[in-house]
Design a protein around this nucleic acid. Structure first.
Length: 1126
RNA sequence: GGGCCUGUAGCUCAGGUGGUUAGAGCGCUACACUGAUAAUGUAGAGGUCCGUGGUUCGAGUCCACGCAGGCCCA
């Protein structure tokens, strides 16, 4: 029986399916984890995908990347628990449900109850779980799919509540404002998603004002700032400049009042405000009413020189007086000179940038107090100025005699036109226009004009939106900013730049985490409040909630718990039905917000184990993670939320090593999308190529953190080049091992030092490879590892070792040398199965099983083996260098033979090659592999030419790195001098160890080690050179060499005949050859023995003529031959 | 608009701390091998290292400014 299965054809997809079946039947995954019980843990966190869509090819990338390091660490002896997980909440789920039901958010609570809606969400979110599980299995991603964490489960939510309560107790959760898109017409905030709906951004014409802000204590000097929302001007509390922009003071006149003034604006913006035709008009010549207004720059300065400048409030309304540093100049990194004046007006309540900048600079915003004492902006939620501003505007209208389409009372100033006022009415004036006229009259407007721009509108009411401060719950991440920055420095980011750049910068510019989402399907915020907000409670567990409900029932606020006799579901609407009782005995209602789904996923290290309510031991042994991996788009998502929660609550990193992988694009570098039809179906690809080639391609083609241009041809290429070569190598081994009944037995194997040099070499290479792969994997660099394995397999093992050792396998009977060859090849293949098992888990296991089927005590699966590290004692650096010389020498000789001027094929033996050697070591290393070179390139002798031979022609080059440091700018003269050297100068520096030369008139001493001497030529010979190695080929063809060439040609032709005749390898033959010419006949006689040995011929007869023979083409002549089976 | 990444042969990618003539695989061309054979080997052709400036004796590599593509955030 054959000990090693031989495969005529392999189907890689079939291997994938068979091995998957084998893993399932034998529970290999669980064994690989349970095997390591009690061993050190290596912790991996699974970033939960959402199963409400089908998986794509990029998920293969992400999941492969996760898988390989877990497999590797398992082999290395760690216990790697891998809990799967599902992300189940969030807007995409809601949107999908709404689309399917044909409803909008409006309908929720009306035509569909929150209860039904959430039920639908719950059903939808796991819709494609089976497809995901299928893909996960098929690509060999080992993760526990039987007991995953699911973010909607009560235990998961309970852990979240616990974390929130801990934050709450640390005073890190507060209710505040954030500037969000808001529709005053609909009375609701809008998500960025809603804002991105088609048609929401529309081109509209608005009144824009360049307002004049008067500098304090300076006569007629104004800072100019431009705005397309004049209604925000009463809320101005600071001006922002760009620190590195250039600004000017310009002496000119106000174009409406003609008052003389000094304007301050960015130099680059002058063209927009001053007519170049007025350039030469002198200021003195200006008369009020002139169209051309002269101007003159009086001063230039940088933006940063303006920081802190104080100005007078534009609308001096008594009720809105603000303390310093209100009404000062601050820095804004977003300020440009593309439009406006290069100076930006800031209104804290009505712009996100404004808000952020003012908070950072501790500048107060314009707010007034309502009846409860809460700070509110001067525009109400209907989009109307509060009377405090309305009165001011109204009185100013009277003061300036401004006529409008109607009488404006204090309560009539809608900031955008939300009223039904007819814009076509005579004298129609909206608030922006009223403000413009007032400013013009008061010498506070430098320019007023209509401005067309794109502005967002509410998709429901078609009315323009406002940016408006809305209440939200926040986590005060800024309080921990420094700690989070410090903790980040511990994390090993792949690539590093994502950690320092994208993530590091994000932490540096951290703002408080807005937790609130106004939605239905998600984790509810566990905060209950009294109606006036004076008392509140944060619930941290189910038990605590039930305790509070009891109190509430006894107080009579509730009749019974919403979960009486029902399974606990902590979602809306049930939690909303809970009314709690405050310490003062007031009713408390839940804050209706849900929390950001990113909190769900960031909490998975704790919630996946239902910590702290259960599994404290498992949690502690598996925290923080040693390794995580997700797409780079998660930097501000999952990576951040993991980091933030860990840093704030556990003063720890959540993960020590992280790979942020790039995108998977199509082969042209475009984003894949179903719409464009360029998306790759992972299931189809798996079916065609199998999982291993797909995984290997993705890992080896480019670093995972670069974008991958996915090309199916690349997968095919990997399959052919790497897997094909490996498979051929195995088949070769199996074929002959079976013929010789060889079975590997490590207890009886020949020790490596006793084996042939070639064996020692490949074993040495193998050890070097193991060390390389190990180092790469310990550094989370899978691309380097896979490329190293590929190089070894294809170039070293198959193309060099097997090719050179081939004859040892099929010639003669079993002997020690043959055994050593088998053992060596076996050991290489065996090691490869382990080295590649993380990346190509199916094929590796399949090959492992093929190799070990007849081996006693072998493991059930390669994935259950222990990693075998490199054996340093088997690494022979000197031998590796020798072989490298052999490979390069052979390549040079091939190149010479192929040279059109020479053109002698390899089958024609040649007498000798000559190699100039300047170092003893090189000669010794070459001598070591001399036999090998001789047979590889078919030459009889290798001769070495040393210094003493006298025929060496040497060349010299400057040793630049050394000379550069010594000479600096004088280099080029010295280099020129060295280039002009002849043999005498080289001889001189070699003998004396130094030489004196003249460099541009300066005398310079040059030492021997500062130049590089090599030999690149032998006069009169054909030479080839490569990196300091030179080979000369003797192309003289003697009679004997010609004869041998003919003999070899004949062997070649006879072998073909044998094959054509269908003879078996071991069949013997008899050969008859017709006399042809003197040379040929002599070849037959002199090399008869050689021919017979090679072709396994019992006899070789030279005859005058042969009947029924075959005419063979011998290139230069023809010969008739008859081959018969003996 | 900001932060970050990428740009090297037709394609996919390598190119520590600057150093003479920039490499590999695929593809292409030619040749070889024909007992690993629907396999394999060897050689050859193929490059304004995105552009422009700068630093330096010397820049694919360092700096600045751009251009193109991408991701995230406004």
């Amino acid at each position: 029986m054959k000990k090693y299965q031989e495969y005529k054809q392999v189907s890689y997809p079939q291997i994938g399916e068979d091995i998957l079946q084998f893993w399932k039947e034998n529970d290999i995954f669980n064994k690989s984890v349970n095997n390591r019980e009690g061993k050190e843990t290596f912790t991996f966190f699974e970033g939960p995908p959402s199963a409400n869509g089908t998986p794509g090819i990029h998920h293969v990338m992400a999941r492969t990347l996760k898988d390989i390091f877990c497999r590797y660490k398992t082999l290395k002896g760690f216990q790697v628990k891998r809990k799967g997980g599902w992300d189940t909440h969030g807007l995409p789920v809601e949107l999908q449900v709404e689309k399917e039901l044909g409803i909008t958010k409006e309908d929720i609570g009306k035509s569909i109850s929150v209860e039904e809606y959430n039920k639908k969400c719950r059903e939808t979110v796991m819709r494609f779980k089976d497809e995901w599980d299928d893909l996960t299995e098929k690509i060999g991603y080992w993760v526990d799919l039987d007991d995953p964490y699911i973010t909607f489960e009560p235990s998961y939510i309970e852990s979240l509540w616990n974390l929130l309560k801990r934050l709450y107790e640390k005073d890190l959760i507060y209710k505040g404002y954030t500037i969000q898109p808001y529709s005053p017409a609909a009375g609701t905030g809008l998500s960025s998603h809603e804002l991105n709906q088609p048609g929401c951004y529309r081109d509209v014409k608005d009144t824009s004002i360049t307002a004049q802000f008067k500098l304090k204590g300076q006569e007629n000097t104004f800072i100019l700032a431009w705005t397309t929302t004049p209604w925000t001007l009463p809320s101005n509390s600071a001006l922002a400049i760009g620190e590195n922009l250039d600004y000017v003071k310009v002496k000119t006149f106000n174009p409406y009042t003609f008052d003389p003034m000094i304007a301050i604006l960015a130099k680059a913006r002058m063209g927009a405000y001053f007519n170049p035709k007025a350039k030469d008009i002198s200021l003195e010549d200006f008369k009020p009413g002139d169209k051309l207004i002269p101007f003159e720059i009086t001063e230039e300065f940088k933006g940063k020189d303006m920081l802190g400048w104080e100005y007078e409030q534009l609308f001096p309304i008594n009720a809105i007086s603000l303390p310093h540093p209100a009404f000062t100049v601050v820095s804004g990194d977003y300020v440009t000179t593309e439009d406006g004046t290069g100076i930006v007006h800031l209104a804290k309540a009505f712009g996100a940038d404004d808000f952020r900048t003012l908070v950072q600079n501790n500048v107060p915003g314009v707010f007034v107090q309502d009846e409860q004492g809460n700070e509110i902006p001067v525009v109400d939620k209907q989009g109307k100025f509060l009377p405090v501003v309305g009165e001011y505007l109204s009185s100013k209208m009277k003061e300036h005699g401004i006529q409008a389409h109607k009488e404006f009372g204090p309560d009539d100033f809608f900031v955008k036109n939300y009223t039904k006022d007819d814009e076509n009415a005579a004298e129609y004036k909206n608030t922006d226009i009223v403000i413009s006229i007032i400013l013009k009259n008061e010498n506070k407007a430098f320019k007023v004009e209509k401005y067309e721009h794109s502005y967002p509108h509410c998709w429901r009411t078609d009315m323009p939106i406002l940016y408006y401060p809305l209440e939200s719950w926040f986590i005060k991440t800024t309080a921990y900013k420094d700690r989070l920055v410090a903790l980040n420095k511990i994390i090993n980011w792949k690539p590093e730049a994502t950690g320092t750049g994208r993530f590091g910068n994000w932490l540096e510019n951290l703002v408080d985490w807005n937790l609130s989402r106004s939605r239905f399907w998600g984790t509810p915020l566990p905060i209950w409040r009294t109606e006036d907000g004076s008392e509140e409670i944060c619930i941290g567990s189910v038990a605590e909630l039930q305790e509070e409900i009891k109190k509430s029932i006894s107080k009579g606020f509730m009749e019974k718990s919403p979960w009486d006799g029902k399974e606990m579901d902590l979602h809306r609407p049930y939690v909303d039905d809970v009314i709690l009782v405050s310490p003062k005995g007031e009713k408390m209602f839940r804050e209706t917000d849900l929390i950001d789904v990113w909190f769900d996923s960031g909490a998975m290290p704790y919630a996946q184990w239902h910590y702290p309510f259960e599994n404290e031991d498992i949690f502690k042994a598996n925290y923080p993670a040693d390794y995580i991996a997700e797409g780079v788009d998660q930097t501000r998502g999952w990576f951040f939320t993991l980091h933030a929660i860990a840093g704030m609550l556990f003063d720890s990193v959540a993960f020590k090593n992280v790979i942020a992988n790039g995108l998977v694009l199509d082969k042209n570098g475009n984003k894949m999308s179903k719409r464009l039809g360029n998306a790759i179906d992972p299931f189809k690809t798996l079916k065609e190529y199998g999982p291993d080639a797909l995984r290997w391609y993705m890992l080896s083609n480019a670093n995972p953190w670069d974008n991958l241009k996915f090309n199916l041809e690349g997968v095919a290429d990997v399959q052919r080049r790497f897997f094909g070569t490996l498979q051929n190598t195995y088949n070769f081994f199996a074929l002959y091992a079976n013929l010789d009944a060889f079975v590997y037995d490590s207890s009886k194997s020949i020790t490596v030092p006793e084996r042939a040099e070639l064996d020692q070499w490949i074993i040495s290479k193998l050890q070097s490879l193991i060390a390389e792969v190990e180092a790469a994997m310990d550094n989370y660099d899978a691309t380097k590892a896979t490329r190293a394995i590929m190089n070894f397999t294809v170039d070293q093992l198959s193309n060099w070792y097997v090719r050179l050792a081939r004859k040892r396998f099929w010639r003669g009977d079993m002997n020690a040398d043959k055994q050593a060859a088998y053992e060596t090849l076996y050991e290489c293949l065996y090691s490869l199965t382990q080295l590649m098992s993380s990346f190509a888990p199916f094929y590796a296991d399949w090959l492992y099983k093929s190799l070990t089927a007849s081996t006693a005590n072998s493991s059930e699966s390669v994935h259950l083996t222990d990693w075998v590290s490199a054996n340093d004692s088997l690494i022979n650096q000197d031998l590796e260098e020798s072989m490298d010389l052999a490979q390069r020498t052979s390549s040079l000789v091939h190149s010479l033979r192929k040279n059109p001027k020479i053109g002698i094929k390899v089958r024609q033996p040649l007498q000798r090659i000559m190699i100039p050697v300047l170092q003893e070591k090189t000669q010794r290393q070459l001598e070591h592999v001399e036999e090998l070179i001789k047979s590889e390139v078919n030459i009889k002798a290798v001769e070495y030419i040393d210094d003493a031979s006298g025929v060496l022609v040497k060349s010299v080059k400057p040793n630049l790195p050394i000379l550069g440091k010594k000479l600096g700018p004088k280099m080029r003269f010295v280099v020129a001098a060295i280039k002009s050297w002849g043999q005498e100068e080289i001889a001189e520096i070699e003998q004396n160890g130094q030489i004196t030369l003249d460099a541009n008139g300066e005398t310079i001493e040059l030492l021997l080690e500062e130049v590089l001497i090599s030999s690149e030529d032998i006069p009169g010979w054909s030479v080839a050179t490569d990196e300091g190695l030179t080979v000369a080929l003797d192309i003289t063809l003697t009679e004997e060499l010609k004869q041998e060439g003919i003999a070899r040609d004949l062997v070649n032709r006879v072998q073909n005949l044998r094959k054509d005749m269908g003879l078996e390898v071991q069949d013997k033959i008899n050969i008859q050859v017709a006399r042809q010419n003197e040379l040929s006949d002599a070849a037959m006689q002199n090399f008869a023995r050689y021919i017979q040995t090679e072709t396994q011929a019992l006899s070789l007869e030279l005859q005058d003529s042969i009947s029924g023979g075959t005419v063979l083409d011998m290139d230069d002549f023809e010969i008739t031959v008859k081959v018969e089976k003996a």
